[in-house]
């Protein structure tokens, strides 16, 4: 382990905390994208480049786009309510950094009897594409079903609900 790893992990935790604690939802979504980018860097460091690329394009691109369009469809919070809401939210969220620091102190000082397995021998199938398409076909079919499910969700829940509230 070197200094880079420590920096990456610290950045991940800090950006996750800020994503969760920030006042404005749009900032939270951008924070989510940044957290995903940091995770991608970690994945590159852990020799998972292809998964890293997926993570970047989907979780730092597609999902924030979905969130932003959803937020864009909601109405802006009325100006008077904003400070009160912010204070209330801060009151509920301030224990978080405190708890995190406590957790860091506890986990680094207290030796947990965690053992790791010995080396397991080389990987039987090292080709990612073979694994993805041939070795786990059931998963593949399930993913197709999931995406169809998502499509039906949009069709059934968003299109048909009339603009009753507007």
């Amino acid at each position: 382990m070197n200094a880079l790893d420590v920096v990456l992990v610290a950045a991940l935790v800090v950006s996750a905390t800020m994503t969760v604690m920030t006042a404005r939802l749009l900032r939270a979504v951008i924070g989510l994208a940044i957290t995903s980018a940091i995770l991608t860097m970690i994945m590159f460091r852990l020799a998972a480049p292809i998964a890293g690329v997926f993570e970047l394009s989907v979780c730092a691109g597609l999902i924030p786009a979905i969130f932003i369009s959803a937020i864009g469809l909601t109405r802006r919070l009325a100006a008077e309510e904003l400070p009160a809401r912010q204070q209330e939210r801060l009151r509920r969220f301030w224990p978080l950094p405190v708890l995190l620091v406590l957790a860091i102190i506890v986990l680094t000082q207290w030796p947990l009897p965690i053992g790791l397995p010995d080396s397991q021998g080389p990987e039987p199938v090292t080709d990612l594409s073979t694994l993805l398409w041939n070795a786990r076909p059931a998963d593949l079919l399930a993913q197709v079903a999931l995406l169809l499910g998502g499509a039906f969700a949009v069709v059934m829940l968003v299109k048909n609900v009339g603009r009753e509230h507007e």
Partner: peptide, 26 residues
């Protein structure tokens, strides 16, 4: 030492997460 399998699982996980999020946002 199983990076290919781990990446496959991670990719599947990301796809599942997208589907769930789409439903959640709907």
């Amino acid at each position: 030492g199983r990076m290919a399998l781990a990446q496959t699982l991670a990719i599947t996980l990301i796809v599942v997460e997208v589907a769930v999020m789409v439903v959640a946002v709907s």
